[in-house]
Design a protein around this nucleic acid. Structure first.
Lengths: 245, 245
DNA sequence: GGAATAGTGTCTCTCAGACATTATCGA
DNA sequence: TCGATAATGTCTGAGAGACACTATTCC
């Protein structure tokens, strides 16, 4: 290993980008902001910004999250580092390394971006990732700015994988939720239909996953459903199984 | 999101650090190099170095790997990004963000570091992470430089977790290997004993995991064992199950 | 023959998947 | 009463864990 030479290291800009996911209207949605300046002016992008000289990467991500959504990572939302993207040409102006973070949040009020609703929106990830139909494709102007398509795809795949073996699906739910609401989260994130009976048996039988609050709700219509809070367990054992294809 | 201001971003140094793991003598070992200059002069550290101005993060990791071990990522070794560490004070001299990478390699010849064997070694991760006994602890001079203890711990946990649901355990083996050799890899990485009969049934019954070469070997002594190559499957379904505790 | 490792077989219990029925609300 | 959702129960097959036996080599 060559020794450090503090006077001769190449300077980088370091940013954080956020993949903020939520479940709205039975669909997995990501937060997108419209770029107001070049490059990629007018295109949708993931929210993000520079890491400041005195803050940690996680702090920077939490600060950007609060600035973009008003959401604080301690209020039920989950924040974790996703991956780092550093292709030399990912930003045409300078060398930028971006540390992407993944946020899982309950369904929120309309996003805000400096108060301008047209510059921020929740978009179904299927639309953003061009799964919506054959008429769309990369490079036709509908894809996200920079390499944010890939970052978003990586974040979605992380979320889909992680709700299998962790209790993170509860991060998409309000503080108290029903088994049916939790099932609809799994169905939206995975894009599959799950058997309500097997799902109910599974989640209520996994130790530490759900804690009954004693209350009930009829907000979904039909018979009143028991309310639960997230249990303390971080890892599910045995895991939830994602149906094949 | 505040717009880019190319003239006013805080400059960072970006490095790659490597968690290079292998299985030697029935133990999971990591590559450590001795630091030749301050800070932490004389202490063991993970190999690594600066990312150059024109190279991608993965390229930088592969280059450092080749410089430290002579190992090329295409020769059976596995290289993937691990996580990024950017605490403002992780390096006392300047703001350094390190993108850690994880390498899984077969048992190699003795490491080299500029030809000086005393400045690089394979160390059992149990020793490096102070699991060896109560007489050792953080801060007593036996821990790694910078935040490399944590990086190593994260890399080891990634490896332990990933061989459950992927075929990556074969990256610790030579191109042709026996079921028993693969079992000893799992035993070393997880630190547990596995039932040879159930293990054999499991790995040979998982589609795409192992491909018989037709050859046999007696290098382990005893009855000749069939030789296998890694199959094409990247993900194991159903996964290998790590015994509890 | 003895020691070592390789390979196969059997039993049981857990659990996921498929499926039916009853319960309790609002309109 | 109807239509919605919630909750519980039964059956079956796949598979993991525990365990016994045979096979083939080198000494």
């Amino acid at each position: 290993m060559s020794p450090y030479d503090p006077s001769a290291f190449p300077p980088f800009a370091v940013t954080v980008d956020l993949v903020v996911l939520t479940v709205r209207h039975h669909a997995l949605c990501a937060l997108a902001v419209r770029r107001g300046e070049p490059p990629y002016q007018g295109r949708w992008a993931l929210p993000g910004g520079f890491v400041r000289a005195d803050e940690d990467l996680t702090q920077a991500a939490a600060r950007e999250l609060a600035e973009e959504t008003g959401l604080h990572a301690q209020n039920g939302a989950h924040l974790e580092q996703l991956a780092t993207y550093g292709d030399p040409h990912r930003d045409p102006r300078m060398r930028v390394v971006s540390v992407a973070h993944l946020v899982l949040a309950p369904d929120l009020p309309a996003p805000r971006a400096g108060g301008d609703a047209r510059s921020a929106r929740w978009a179904p990830v299927g639309e953003l990732l061009h799964d919506g139909g054959p008429e769309r494709g990369p490079g036709d102007g509908s894809s996200l700015a920079f390499d944010h398509d890939r970052i978003l795809a990586d974040g979605v795949e992380r979320a889909r994988s992680k709700i299998e073996y962790s209790s993170l699906a509860t991060a998409f739910c309000p503080p108290e939720f029903t088994v049916g609401e939790l099932r609809r989260v799994y169905e939206a994130v995975w894009g599959v239909a799950l058997d309500p009976r097997n799902f109910h048996r599974k989640v209520t039988g996994t130790p530490g996953f759900l804690v009954p609050t004693g209350g009930t709700t009829t907000r979904q219509g039909g018979r009143p459903a028991q309310l639960f809070r997230a249990g303390g367990a971080a890892l599910l054992n045995p895991p939830m199984l994602r149906p094949e294809i």
